[in-house]
Design a protein around this nucleic acid. Structure first.
Lengths: 139, 139
DNA sequence: TATGTTATGCAACTCAATTGCAAAGATCAG
DNA sequence: CTGATCTTTGCAATTGAGTTGCATAACATA
């Protein structure tokens, strides 16, 4: 709710804290699950799709959010923790995609193991998604 | 190359071994990396997109292939091993997506750990993708 | 061969993602 | 304060993956 907080968070990632970006960051902070562009379009009906699209891209490039590729066909984004550098493998965690409500959740406490990749495969990021049914949908 | 082999493989998954399906299975066997619908369209220019699309869906539903969601935005499919039931977590393995050539590789020998999911999250599948640069592109 | 089922082809549509360009807003030097 | 410059936002349009309904062709079964 403290806008200055969000401003600080943007500034710490070298993102110009415009009104639009603060509003979008605020929305992502309040939201429990990862968000895709269509989610933002639904919420920010007054704003242009392009702006929302580019805001997500900007957030991603500056490491404010990480990208998740679930089976929904929609690219989702979720906020990184304050000290996250999105580096592999330490800052990569497991996600859960519910096929029923199509929401994607972060499980920051579930990290990923170290993998010995075949020679000359150079890792930089990761998207680990478990698919199934979430508590709201599995009851 | 032995078509009868491919026929057997389709039949063992209860898939009617039509000429089209045998050709597509054959192509997938020869291919090193996972394939998406656009890849099939490029190769089978004479066939209809819908047929290719539905063939992949059929293969998926019958457990002949598994689905991978990498950062390309294209749903990829890769052949399962003979005795694979695509069950979580035993039959789930790590994949590698190269951002340069946009190819996705299976690492069947790299399994995934057991995760204690939060209560009432019921897993059924998984898509574990490490992103980076493949040997051909990292040199 | 007749009949019903399955597979394929055709056409059309939806929607997420993306790009170029113009207008508006912010920043900074003088 | 003013003008020049850079960044952000809005508008319009396009691409391309994914999907569906329906008609026809191929196939299996009796």
């Amino acid at each position: 709710m403290n806008m200055t907080n969000h401003e600080q968070r943007l500034l710490s990632r070298n993102i110009q804290p415009t009104a639009m970006r603060i509003r979008i960051l605020s929305f992502m902070v309040e939201n429990k699950s990862a968000l895709g562009l269509p989610d933002l379009e639904e919420t920010f009906t007054h704003a242009d799709r392009t702006t929302l699209y580019r805001t997500l891209k900007t957030f991603l490039e500056h490491g404010l959010v990480h990208q998740i590729n679930d089976a929904s066909g929609i690219t989702k984004y979720a906020l990184c923790s304050e000290n996250c550098t999105c580096s592999y493998p330490d800052d990569v965690h497991v996600h859960f995609y519910c096929t029923s409500c199509e929401q994607t959740f972060c499980f920051p406490h579930l990290g990923i193991p170290h993998y010995d990749l075949p020679e000359n495969f150079i890792p930089s990021h990761g998207s680990f998604v478990i698919t199934g049914s979430c508590p709201s949908c599995s009851s």
